[in-house]
Design a protein around this nucleic acid. Structure first.
Lengths: 349, 349
DNA sequence: CTGAAAGCGCTTACAG
DNA sequence: CTGAAAGCGCTTACAG
């Protein structure tokens, strides 16, 4: 019933704990354990189903073989799938993964980081919240490896994997303009996070580069964390007071989902009455009738790059916080919600 | 730079490690530490930002304050949201959570359980795979608390939180029958898991209780883990060879999603040509035009009940594997995809 | 080639 | 009221 320890193995084999430890840690050869001894040890380990006690190992080595994954919301399509890939890769490399959701709340995020630090995780992958800078700087000072994913922290050197939000937004807006839309509603949330500010900048640049025609931009910003009901009613209100709109640009996945709900409630048809595009792909956008044009984040690439980078930093193959990272290109997937605009008076194509 | 330990705190205060330990573990009163000493210790702990080394504590006590969450796929809406709630509840109770996805693969699941056991998790919440019985029995023998979620293991006494799949399926099928549908396609996957067998049983019972009219059932079973392309083409094939169908019943969320894609490809309209219902709700089903009638799983209730039960077992407030659990009632959400059937005289085909 | 032993940082039974 | 000390199960420098 009691768990077997290295001592038990050593005793049963009439050898020393040292020898058993060397075998377990693959140091037999380097330490000159005879193949015969090695085999004896291995066989008994298997027979007794011995597994080294991780707490003891952790206490001794200071390494936990555990990673911390802090995302905004694990229940979300994007982060859930990021998490899945990260966990699989971590597992392949002998790591377990703690996870948790910040819900974009600073206090929660700080608590989670500290909670995990007390469990001595070997490294973090973090989706930052707005006020997390201090906490993350502390990690750096203590030399704890971490990689930022999805968003940067302004004025902080770090390792990161982010989307090229500017470019994605620019291209998505440009797509609308090229298709003839001239009164575009930009619906986003109040946020200082690079992710959101870059999307806004990209959108505005595209508008300014709009060419010969003047493109009008109408902007609606929603408080982060507003309830679904509130968000939908704000979007509905926006639609009612801006009747000239011929296209909507949703700056996030969930705004897009709620926006579509608002449009349905207002009996505004896509794309006959208004064109729609959104950041982030999901099942809904793909299967809806009409399907929705999006800037899609390459989830697999983002997850893989971030865990690979973190493992490299942990193994000291890469320096921590050397300000190197990956900027992943989003893909514009054109679907039915943004057809060439039918021009009434002017020439048609 | 070096982490501060209890020894450092004790030395600086000219007291013993014992005293510090008692304060930290809230045993001051029971052990008769004077309030003055207690305060001194607490203040210094805060000042030095001392945090007990979890590895040492774990080695000493054998408790890790860590839970293991093993689900089918964390990237999935249902499991992702289950995970989120479980993590929040666990955190409130001082636990960290390891997670991983089995992808419904036995070998993966076994490996994950063992990997987590070596990290001495204090308890598991497990979405079982088909051949996991042995492994789970082992946990029981070693007195490691666990709660099965979403599916039972046949002939195994355990603690569990599952959906009343039979009832949900029965009610969903009955809804179709009551609305006048008579040729219903039942699309599910090959599986011995209780979850799937119960859904099939519920469906068949509803058909048999169908009343005066004879209800025809047509069944399509798909190999688990078939690719999306394969699944869609199998469903398309099924639709082509069963032209008499007037309704489809999808036994899982993702079959429903792929089924809708198949219907779109085949240019079969919902609900004019065929009615559709599915197990599990999601954004897509809610927002699609037409929206899809579903048997919805109360995610929050399931997650909360399972973590509460696990914590009770860990705290020995409930016996492990006493075969007690919760059977949660699904809710039938009627939407546009299953309207009252228009009856045309009698024959059409 | 292999072993005895220190020490990682805690908790707790025991002693005073 | 408080302290000295054993021991949880490992890893590894040192000795032979």
């Amino acid at each position: 019933m009691k768990k077997v320890s290295m001592k038990d193995i050593a005793k049963e084999l009439n050898t020393s704990i040292t020898t058993v430890s060397f075998v377990i840690n693959g140091k037999s050869e380097a330490m000159g354990i005879s193949p015969a001894t090695e085999k004896k040890v291995r066989d008994l380990i298997k027979k007794r189903e011995f597994n080294p006690n991780s707490a003891a190992r952790m206490l001794r080595t200071g390494k936990s073989k555990t990673l911390g994954l802090i995302v905004e919301d694990i229940g979300n399509f994007f982060f859930g799938n990021i998490a899945k890939i990260i966990e699989i890769e971590a597992n392949k490399n002998g790591y377990n993964v703690f996870f948790s959701s910040t819900e974009n709340n600073d206090e929660t995020a700080k608590k989670l980081i500290n909670k995990m630090r007390n469990s001595s995780v070997d490294g973090y992958i973090i989706t930052a919240t707005q006020g997390l800078k201090e906490e993350v700087i502390k990690l750096g000072r203590e030399n704890i490896p971490f990689v930022l994913i999805d968003r940067l922290i302004p004025d902080l050197e770090a390792n990161y994997v982010i989307l090229d939000n500017y470019q994605g937004s620019y291209n998505l807006a440009k797509h609308l303009i090229e298709r003839g839309y001239k009164n575009i509603g930009f619906i986003s949330i109040y946020s200082e996070m690079s992710m959101m500010t870059e999307r806004e900048k990209g959108f505005i640049s595209a508008i300014n580069d709009g060419g010969t025609d003047t493109i009008q931009m109408h902007s609606l910003k929603i408080e982060f964390g507003s309830s679904e009901v509130k968000t939908i009613s704000m979007i509905s209100e926006f639609l009612k007071t801006n009747t000239a709109l011929d296209a909507l640009f949703f700056a996030t996945n969930y705004l897009g989902v709620m926006g579509i709900e608002a449009l349905q409630k207002c009996k505004i048809r896509i794309p006959q009455d208004i064109a729609v595009v959104s950041f982030d792909d999901n099942d809904l956008f793909r299967l809806l009738t009409p399907s929705i044009t999006v800037a899609s984040q390459p989830i697999k690439e983002m997850a893989t790059k971030s865990i690979e980078m973190l493992l490299r930093i942990i193994k000291k193959e890469q320096k921590l916080n050397d300000n190197r990272g990956h900027i992943i290109k989003p893909e514009i997937i054109v679907r039915e919600s943004s057809p060439q605009k039918k021009v009434l008076i002017n020439s048609k194509h």
